[in-house]
Design a binder for these strands. Structure first.
Lengths: 192, 192
DNA sequence: AAATACACTTGCCCTATGGCAAGAAATGCT
DNA sequence: AGCATTTCTTGCCATAGGGCAAGTGTATTT
């Protein structure tokens, strides 16, 4: 199986070769067609995903009913609503494939077993959670300290696949503006 | 010492009576005058605080130079910049007392020792971190799904001490609006 | 008690952004 | 290839919220 792939994903000093075999076995490959919903708001997540190919997003509706993209998920990234999956509570967001794609999933029960059996996996999970908090905190700071234009430029630099593969409107709402405004920002940028 | 107080703060099934004594001993009482800075952006946090009395806040400057309050800290809450304290990186925010107050602090080294020696404390810390992620995620969802007016009403209901003790301008920037706008919202609310 | 410093409200005006809609461009489907 | 759908741009207009400043109120200091 795809041991190499999983070694780069679940990279932790405590994990040994046999652990990776165990981890690999827990995964099942799954294909998603463009537009497929992976998880809907209000439902309880049943699976953990690692993206292999394609682009995914999470979104919700603001107080005016507009769709707001809250995150993009690229290959090699983990896609889950962690609180829904682990605390068994309704998901706060919707998750959707915005291109055809493939992922490796782990069922909830299997995931719990892995956590239980493999110490290094547990530690990897904790590290991942800590990192999530770091990233989320940084994003909430960026939203106020960096203008939409600059965050767009950052996105181009740091995650160009998103710019190339996502419709403008998803990127716009991710940046906190409308597609009309982002279109104008692009014009500004290209003009100078 | 204030064992009862610390028992309500560090509440975890693994913690036993002797642990609370150990934990209590690690704390030093400290008084803050209104306006005192506890930690400034760019510096590395050296202490962990539990608020006993008073009101505190964290803030930063947006891309137009406006002060933005990012969080309020009330009695019985933990006040730290966790990544600055534990990863030894510069703080991203400023922390300030907005009333006279008292807190219990633990020095960085002492905190590390506690984590090392007391398993229940370590577990409590993990639980706290998980909860931080949950709260931060919920807040970032609230910002888009609930209007400023409704978030203000929620704040009145859920954390009335803040409304009573904090100047309007801090609350306004916390809600993502100016003090002028919040003043108008209050008028709206009281009128009808 | 006067003086000073904040805090809050309110009016006026202005600007950035959104809503809408038309048109152009690109993409996908049959 | 031709049609349909979606995406993106752009103009016009409306509006929520911000900037500013004056005026009132409330504390704190000397």
């Amino acid at each position: 199986m795809e041991i190499d792939f999983f070694q780069t994903i679940y990279n932790h000093p405590l994990l040994r070769k046999e652990d990776y075999e165990e981890i690999s076995k827990a995964h099942t490959k799954i294909e998603f067609a463009h537009g497929t919903m992976l998880l809907e708001k209000g439902k309880i997540a049943g699976e953990f995903y690692v993206i292999e190919k394609g682009l995914f997003r999470s979104f919700l509706y603001d107080y005016n009913g507009n769709e707001i993209t809250t995150e993009f998920y690229c290959p090699k990234e983990i896609l889950i609503e962690s609180f829904s999956l682990f605390q068994r509570i309704p998901s706060k967001e919707n998750f959707q494939a915005i291109s055809d794609g493939t992922a490796w999933k782990i069922e909830y029960d299997t995931f719990q077993e892995l956590l239980h059996k493999v110490e290094g996996f547990r530690e990897w999970g904790r590290t991942w959670a800590t990192n999530q908090l770091f990233v989320l905190k940084q994003r909430s700071i960026d939203v106020v300290t960096i203008s939409a234009t600059d965050r767009y430029l950052n996105l181009i630099k740091e995650r160009p696949q998103i710019i190339l593969q996502s419709p403008l409107k998803y990127i716009a709402s991710y940046l906190g503006i409308t597609d009309t405004s982002l279109s104008r920002i692009r014009k500004e940028i290209s003009t100078g």
